[in-house]
Nucleic acid binder design. Structure first.
Length: 259
DNA sequence: CGAACGACCTGTTCGC
DNA sequence: TGCGAACAGGTCGTTC
């Protein structure tokens, strides 16, 4: 679930909540996840986002890369409470606990120096340019939608925002990447900027179970134009939004204004 | 290098 | 109502 806006929201909230705090205890509850005994007693120096990864930097130089995949969540609790269902790991700090929650157990937590964040694509909030995308997309024959999801090209866009960005840009998600014109690359960059920044401001999209660090829903689901709206009218042109499958992923688009 | 597809997991929703 | 199939925000490995 968590794409760039959701991960960015969590990172900002983590910065506010745990930077400068000393890790008192780690409890791993899922055998798929490692133990981190060396981190006990270390202080959190920074929290950063890289694509959809959350990087936790500690004062001894260790960096943890947390990836939430489909259903991962982080939840902060100041008071001692019951452990939420599907909690896979717990970090205890002086002022509260961080619960790492994930029903599907896809979440990964790795020592960053051992396995540097996969991908390497540019951050769409920082470095995205039409020129870069045109150069990377020139030889790609697959759909533009699959291209936008390639984390080695752009780090952070997922299925919801790929659909929304292409709607905003007025481009058919099935269009072969090498057929995208310069004018369309320009629109894609402008649309990515607009959609992602708005979604960050909204604290993400809660379509089923996304919650932020404090358990609150995002509000960008009220701004969606096509995602999960099959059968409903396009807010721009009124045509009925359709669903198809591209690259194995459910894809929503408006046949009236995406060409 | 790139495209297609199954695998990884579990819960929820849909269709008959 | 019951039950199996389909589907879900994301990568990763294999094969062609």
């Amino acid at each position: 679930m968590p794409e760039l806006p959701e991960v960015e929201t969590l990172c900002r909230q983590l910065v506010q909540t745990i930077t400068g705090q000393t890790l008192l205890e780690i409890l791993t509850l899922d055998s798929k996840l490692p133990d981190f005994p060396d981190l006990i007693g270390c202080q959190v120096l920074h929290v950063n986002r890289r694509g959809k990864n959350i990087l936790l930097s500690f004062d001894d130089g260790q960096v943890l890369a947390v990836h939430l995949r489909m259903t991962g969540r982080l939840l902060w609790q100041k008071e001692v409470t019951e452990v939420p269902q599907y909690t896979r790991l717990i970090m205890t700090f002086p002022t509260g606990r961080v619960f790492f929650i994930d029903p599907r157990r896809f979440m990964t937590i790795q020592e960053h120096s051992l396995s540097p964040c996969h991908g390497g694509g540019v951050d769409p909030l920082l470095d995205l340019t039409p020129k870069y995308l045109a150069a990377r997309g020139r030889t790609r024959k697959g759909s533009i939608k699959t291209f936008l999801l390639d984390q080695s090209v752009i780090a952070g866009i997922g299925n919801i925002y790929a659909c929304e960005i292409l709607h905003q840009a007025g481009i058919d998600p099935a269009r072969p990447t090498h057929r995208i014109s310069d004018a369309q690359w320009l629109r894609i960059v402008a649309s990515a900027d607009k959609v992602l920044n708005k979604a960050v401001a909204c604290h993400g999209t809660t379509v089923s179970d996304w919650r932020d660090f404090h358990g609150n829903e995002g509000t960008f689901q009220h701004e969606l134009c096509v995602y999960s709206r099959a059968g409903l009218p396009c807010p721009r042109c009124g045509k009925t939004v359709l669903r198809c499958v591209i690259g194995g992923r459910g894809t929503y688009f408006c046949p009236g204004c995406q060409i």
